[in-house]
Amino acid sequence: MKKTALLAVILTGALLILSMENFPSWGDVQSPASLHLSRHFIEKSYEQTLTPNLVTAVLGDYRGFDTMLETVVVFTAALACFLVIRLPRDVCTPGLFYYRHTRTGLVVRKHDACELPGENPTFERVDSDWPPHDVVVVSTCRMVIPFIQLFGLYVVAHGHYSPGGGFQGGVIFAASYVLLAVSHDLRTLVHRLNERVTHLLSAAGVLLFFGVGLFGMAMGLNFLDYGALEGVLGMSLASGHSLGILLVEIGVGMTVTAALVIIFKLLSSRGTVTEGL
């Protein structure tokens, strides 16, 4: 079986390499894509969309629907993960549960988790199989996380002018929360960004994107025409486009951040969102 699989892989690879002959060579100005479409985008995109970054012009203006529905895909992925993995809140998961007495540092073991000490100030929950407590890791991450988040916001905000945008900035922002969960524990993350907030954020991002599109229709223009924001605050057309793209990028960033945090929380805790990586 393994031999046949290897043979199939090698044959497919050989076919792919052979068919590469027919591709236009890299950077060929005579290739069909470069003759019409790329030239149109490079020459006309600024006067048509008033967006300085070519990639953003393509993603945000020419292919606005594509980007919008990609955001819906990310939202749907998080929703599907939630519906498949998340356990109901009142399910008792059997196993061992550890609590640390905060004054003395003694750890108590319990066999059932149904009666949690709740908001008990003298006991805190400790992970049973992954107790991260290294002071170097914790304090380094505590110092690094604000800078990662600031960089994520920078990437979101500058998507109009430079490489980056909502997807990348949102992922960087989510990575900072993942780092928080890995360096401290999952409950710290849930305490900072609980499930209600992440679910609302992921839906609000999609709605913000749709809202910008619908605003264009309300002003008598096409769906997702960022020029609709032109006269709102007394701005010029270019500033209106810039603001529209910024709002859209923020929407994408919110959805992506929330969706990735939801997926990480569910995956790392087997759906209980109480203890995990």
């Binding site: 990639v55 490489p163 990348q168 992922v171 990735l260 995956l267 790392s268 805790s269 087997r270 990586l277």
Partner: peptide, 28 residues
Amino acid sequence: MGAVDVAFTEAAIGAGISTALMLAAIFR
């Protein structure tokens, strides 16, 4: 190849967050 946007996405999503998600899944 000069595709800075794609490189950015690959670094953030491919190398960053998907590794973290896979580690979470392996951990469980």
